[in-house]
Design a protein around this nucleic acid. Structure first.
Lengths: 337, 337
DNA sequence: TGGTCGGATGAGAGCGCTCTCATACCATCT
DNA sequence: AGATGGTATGAGAGCGCTCTCATCCGACCA
C-alpha cells in the first residue's frame, strides 16, 4: 500500500503514465477497456496520488485555507469557530481538497498569511473575521484569489459570502413575542457597527412593523454582546419603559445578563416579560428559565462556504459573479417566551 | 511578490540554486557574505518557497494532520474541539508546518485518513478521539508514524499523549468542598470506561482519603456526561444519602442536571449542598448559581500536542520514547461552592 | 614548493505528477 | 484508393525544489 507511483500503476495496467493520469483525472478520451485496466491496477496496488507532486506539476493547490482572525475567534466564541470548521472540513473530506487552518494573531501572521494566499499556496480561502475593516478580503479579491466570507460582506466589496439570516431570525423572534400577546416588545442590540448587530435590529423593526406596532427609540438599548452589557441595557430599558412585556436580545450571552436584570427588578420570566435570545448557545439551555432563542445553522454555514468556494475555484473564468447566500435560522422555543 | 523561484533568488544573489537552498535550510556550510547576499535577495524579491516542490523533492511533508473522530467531536463538544485547534494552529503558525483538519465521520473516511497518514502525506498526526477502541492510534504507532493523542493513551499503547490533570483537578475540587466543612461529599461520575470518567473518580477518592474521610459506594453515582444523566444520578444520590452536603460532578453539563435535581428536592446551593463541576464550560458561568468548576487548559493542550509532535518528528531516530504530559487544571470558584 | 585537507560552491539528477504535442489508428467521405 | 477527420495513446518536457557528488580554492604542513 505504501509507496507506489503512477508509473507502477501504468506498468501494471500496461499503459503509459499519461494514460493512467487521464483515467485518474476525469478519464476523458480513454477507451473503456483501458480505463478498466487502470482502475483495476489502482485498486490492486492501493495507489494514492502524491499530493505534492500533483500540485507541483499542475501548479494548483489542493488546499483550502480557513483563515481565522483572532478577534473573530474571541468574539464569536469557540463554538462558532469549531462548528464552522467541522462543517467545512466535513464537506471537503468528500473532495480532493484539504482544509488547512491559518490563525492570524498579530501583524506578522497577517503578512505571512496574506503572502501565502497571494502566492496561490491555497486554492482559495474561507474567511472568518468580524472586523469589517480587515484589509485581507479586499486584497484577496483584488488579487483574484477565490474566497468566501462568513457573514455579510462589507459594503462595496464584491465577494461571495454566506450568512445566517439575522434579519429573518430576529423578525421570527419578535413575531413569536407578539403572538404571545406582548405589545411592548423592546430589544437589546449588539454594537450597531457590526453586521449581526445591525441586522438583528433591522429584524426587530421588521417584526414590529408587520404586527402594526410602533418601534420607538425608547424600546431600543445597545449592548456589546457581553453579559454585563446585556444586563446594563436591560436595566436602562426597564427604567425607560416600565410597561415592557417582551424583550428580544440580540445574543444569548446578553440575554443572560438581561435575565439577571429582570429578576432583580422583580419581573417574572416569562409571565411578566417574555425573553428571546439569539444563537442557541450552550448558555441558552442552562439559563433559568431555559432561553427561547434563534438557532443559526453554523455547521451548514461552514459547509456552504466550502461548497461555494470550490464552485468558484472550478469556474475560474475570472468573471465568476459573487454570490450571497443566506441560511435560514430557526426559532427554538423553551421556557422564557 | 508573486511567483519567483529559488532560481530567481540565486540569480539575483549571484550564486547557484544549491547555495541559495542551503541558506534557506539552516545555512550550514555557507560563507557569511554569501549568506547575506542570498538573504538580501530573498527579502528584495519577497520570495517564499513553493511548499509542493519542497515536499516533493525532500519527500517529506510540511503538514500536521489533526484527526477528529466524529464521536469525539460530539462528546467533547465544540468548545473543546475549537480550542484545541486554536492552540495547535497557533503554535504551528510560528513554524513551517501547517495544520490540516481531517474529519472522520464514517468507515470510508477512516480508511481514507489512515491511508493518507500511512502514506506519509503528513509529518505526523494529532489525534482527537474519545473511543478507546479506535484502531487508528495503534496502526500509526505500528507504522512508525509520529503521533500525539489528546487524553490518556489506552493501556498497552506506547504513544505520546497530553492530558489534563483529571485526577488532580478532581482532588482539588473535593479538597475545596472539604475545606468548606462538607463531610458527606458525593460524586456524579462520567462513564467509568472512559478515561476522564475514571480519572476524575480516582481524584475524588484521593481527595477524600487525604481529608481522612471515608468514600463508601453510596456516595458514588454514575452519569453519562449528559445533563439528564447528571440529574438522574443526583436524584439517586439524594435518595440514598439524604445527609449529602457536598457534590463533585465530573462535568458541568451533568452539574446543570444535578442543580435541577437539588432544586427540586428543595436543597439550597451552596447552603445545603455545595456543588463543584468540571470543564469550566460556558454553561458553568450561566448556571444558577454560577458553578464553581475545574478549568482545563484546553488551548494549551492543543499547543503542547503540536509541540511534542514536532519534537518527535525532529528526533525521528525511530526510538523516540513516548512522552506523557499532564497539564495542570485550575479551580474556578464561583457561587455554587 | 608540492602535497594535503577541509570548507564553500556548482552541476545535475531526480521527486511523482500533469500536460502539450506528435503519432498511430480507424472510420467516413469523395 | 486517397483524403479527411476524429479519437486513443505515448513521448517527453517540465513544475520548483533538495541533495549527492564533484570541483575548486585557500590554508596549512613538511
Amino acid at each position: 500500500m505504501s509507496d507506489c507511483t503512477l508509473e507502477d500503476v501504468a506498468a501494471r495496467a500496461g499503459v503509459s503514465r499519461a494514460t493512467a493520469s487521464r483515467v485518474i483525472n476525469g478519464g476523458q478520451r480513454v477507451a473503456a477497456t483501458t480505463r478498466r485496466a487502470v482502475e483495476a491496477a489502482i485498486a490492486e496496488l492501493g495507489y494514492t496520488p502524491n499530493r505534492a507532486a500533483r500540485s507541483l506539476a499542475a501548479s494548483r493547490s489542493d488546499t483550502v485555507a480557513l483563515v481565522v482572525s483572532e478577534p473573530a475567534g474571541r468574539l464569536f466564541g469557540d463554538p462558532f469557530f469549531g462548528q464552522t470548521i467541522r462543517g467545512a472540513a466535513g464537506f471537503l473530506g468528500a473532495t480532493d481538497y484539504q482544509l488547512v487552518v491559518l490563525m492570524v494573531q498579530g501583524d506578522a501572521d497577517r503578512v505571512r498569511v496574506e503572502r501565502h494566499l497571494l502566492r496561490r499556496n491555497a486554492a482559495g480561502a474561507l474567511l472568518l473575521s468580524t472586523r469589517r475593516d480587515d484589509p485581507l478580503p479586499r486584497s484577496l479579491v483584488d488579487a483574484g484569489v477565490a474566497c468566501v466570507l462568513a457573514g455579510r460582506a462589507p459594503d462595496g466589496l464584491a465577494v461571495t459570502y454566506v450568512d445566517a439570516d439575522n434579519v429573518g431570525g430576529a423578525r421570527q423572534a419578535v413575531t413569536h413575542l407578539v403572538k404571545q400577546g406582548r405589545r411592548a416588545v423592546a430589544t437589546v442590540t449588539g454594537p450597531r457597527d457590526m453586521a449581526p448587530g445591525a441586522d438583528r435590529l433591522a429584524g426587530w423593526h421588521l417584526g414590529l412593523a408587520e404586527a402594526g406596532l410602533a418601534a420607538p427609540a425608547s424600546l431600543v438599548a445597545e449592548g456589546d454582546f457581553t453579559r454585563a452589557g446585556g444586563r446594563a441595557a436591560a436595566e436602562a430599558l426597564l427604567r425607560r419603559r416600565p410597561d415592557l412585556d417582551g424583550l428580544f436580545v440580540a445574543s444569548d450571552l446578553m440575554a443572560l445578563g438581561a435575565l439577571e436584570a429582570l429578576r432583580q427588578a422583580g419581573r417574572r420570566v416569562p409571565e411578566d416579560v417574555a425573553v428571546v435570545g439569539f444563537d442557541d448557545s450552550e448558555a441558552a439551555l442552562s439559563a433559568d428559565p431555559p432561553l427561547t432563542t434563534v438557532r443559526q445553522p453554523i455547521e451548514d454555514l461552514g459547509r456552504r462556504m466550502a461548497e461555494l468556494l470550490l464552485a468558484q475555484v472550478a469556474a475560474d473564468d475570472g468573471a465568476a459573479a459573487p454570490t450571497a447566500e443566506i441560511l435560514q435560522t430557526h426559532l427554538v422555543v423553551r421556557a422564557s417566551a
